[in-house]
Amino acid sequence: MKHQPFESWLYERETLTKDQTRDLEDHLEICASCRALATAWADVEGQILSASLIAPAPGFSRRWRTYLADHRRRISHRQMGVLLLTTAVGLAVLSVLFGAELLPSLQQAVPTLVSWVGKVANLVANLNVFRLVMGILVEATLENIPLVYRVVLPLSLAGLAAFWVFSLYRLNYRRITKGVIS
């Protein structure tokens, strides 16, 4: 007896047309082999359909929060490890690449550095002399300037400075205002 396509149709019942379903039922009436398969599949399908969902042990959500926290901790440790490792490797690579070149240069730079330190010390000493000279000059000049000028000159300078600051402010303010309007 020819079992196909009926044997295949046994497992595709939900996609069969009405005619195909009728033909299959007709075949099952006369074919014991296909009928045995149909009964077997119906039994198994019944068992599967009667099996309900299996739940996890109580407290799954609580364990999930712990799982998430552990994951974050692991990630944090891993990132820290990667950072330290990268830094260590970077330093090692730099010292291998440039260590040999930089060491002689550093040794050569020692006398230059020493001479620069001397120059700075000289400059500081010279500045002290400069301040002393300037102090004497200012003192001598002030003694020869009349009292009126001693008052008027600083006041004029202060007025000029105030005018300068005010002009700068007005210029900037107008530019900003124009920028906003446009």
């Binding site: 046994l10 497992y11 045995a36 398969l37 077997a40 599949w41 198994v44």
Partner: peptide, 9 residues
């Protein structure tokens, strides 16, 4: 499905 039916038989 076919495998399950065969095994069931």
């Amino acid at each position: 499905r076919r495998q399950l039916a065969d095994q069931w038989i």
